[in-house]
């Protein structure tokens, strides 16, 4: 199936600029020089990830391709592309906004779900957002858990948050929609190898699996910018 003219929305970027509050309003000046891609650590590991191509698709309005791509989720916000860009295009902010748009379309919830493990589950009760549980085995063996480090320094194992601080965190979380967002993420269930059927196992070799969902419909994403890379590609 080939892309057609109707797959591009030329007006989209012009309409999007005022809503993006001036953060991504320089993308039309992109020279397509590729400096962003050249220095990108994520692109070094996964060659199919290409910020230059994603900026081009944003300006051309090829939204179907951007939003349904796996590549949109490979940036980890080091902002290297922004710092080397000769036209000062804030690409990380664009990634941030379009991940929200992709989630609105039903893509990428499985990636956000991964972060749930690092968040403190009962942050509304404790007031701590990042879990004190250290999961890197090397760190645990050599230095120990965060709570152990704190205790050695003469601090309580967990940071104590004042009652007023707790009340503020609760209000901010409710007002900003964080509470309902965390509930939504809780509704996403990931497929694992024990439960998938033959057809899914076959697909798994070439494409990422769609997620089984609770309340949220999570769709299958595609490598829209080329074949997935890997260490072998990076070293070649």
């Amino acid at each position: 199936m080939l892309e057609q003219v109707k797959d591009w929305d030329d007006d989209f970027y012009e309409k999007f600029k005022p809503i993006a509050m001036g953060f991504v309003n320089e993308a039309e000046k992109c020279l397509q020089c590729g400096k962003c891609t050249g220095q990108c650590p994520a692109a070094a590991v996964t060659p199919s990830y290409n910020p230059r191509k994603i900026i081009r698709d944003l300006v051309n309005g090829n939204l179907k391709r951007v939003l349904s791509s796996v590549e949109l989720w490979q940036c980890f916000f080091c902002s290297g592309c922004f710092s080397v860009c000769p036209m000062d295009i804030n690409f990380p902010f664009f990634v941030f906004m379009f991940r929200l748009a992709a989630m609105n379309e039903g893509y990428g919830w499985e990636d956000v779900k991964q972060l749930e493990g690092y968040a403190e589950k009962d942050y509304l009760r404790k007031g701590i957002t990042v879990s004190t549980f250290e999961r890197n085995p090397e760190v645990v063996e050599t230095i120990g858990d965060i709570s152990k480090i704190r205790m050695e320094a003469g601090l309580p194992p967990e940071r104590k948050v004042s009652d007023r601080g707790l009340a503020e965190i609760n209000m901010i979380s409710d007002l900003s929609g964080m509470t309902s967002f965390m509930k939504k993420i809780g509704g996403v269930e990931l497929l694992d190898c024990k439960t998938c059927n033959d057809e899914q196992a076959k697909r798994c070799k070439t494409k990422p699996l769609p997620s089984k969902v609770g309340k949220i419909k999570t769709k299958l994403r595609f490598y829209n910018y080329g074949e997935p890379g890997g260490k072998a590609h990076a070293e070649a």
């Binding site: 797959d7 939003l67 929200l100």
Partner: peptide, 13 residues
């Protein structure tokens, strides 16, 4: 079309 997706995305933002 991408225009449909664009409209939906714009409404969301």
């Amino acid at each position: 079309t991408s225009r449909d997706v664009g409209t939906r995305t714009m409404n969301y933002f």
